[in-house]
Nucleic acid binder design. Sequence first.
DNA 1: GCCAACGTTGGC
DNA 2: GCCAACGTTGGC
Length: 150
Amino acid sequence: MNYWLLKTEPTTFSISDLKREKITSWEGVRNYQARNFLLEMQPGDVALIYHSSTAQPSVVGTANVVAEAYPDKTARQQKSQYYDPRSTVNKPIWYTVDIEFTSAFKTPVSLEHLKGDPFFADMMVIRPGMRLSIQPVSKKHFDHIIRLAH
DNA sequence: GCCAACGTTGGC
DNA sequence: GCCAACGTTGGC
């Protein structure tokens, strides 16, 4: 079982949207490194949902991975902002996974907190210039964030 | 809105 | 295969 952090801009898709939809396809990942992490994800893995590009960037909830990676259909939809003409049915480039809402934190754990807490000193998300939208997370970091959120 | 850090593209 | 130019991300 592995742990992940999934970034999203709340103006595009927020934890509230996930709560309402219950299960969603995590479409639109267009970065090879993030895609490779998507391909590693397995049902049973759990993820932190992180709001980026907002007043207080924070971990805001959790989700379960419920379907392993499969081709992202938006790559072949010309009207989609995620359209990529290089991706074909036979040779898809981009993938997505299905995740299921599990919780929205009453107390989000802010990036500011993570940066200030030595416990998270080696967490990927606090590294300056870290733009990766899908990141592996250690169990100890995951568990502690859950504890802080309660 | 600024801008640093990165990733991608494409000419050579 | 190098690298400059350009585009994107995302905190501030």
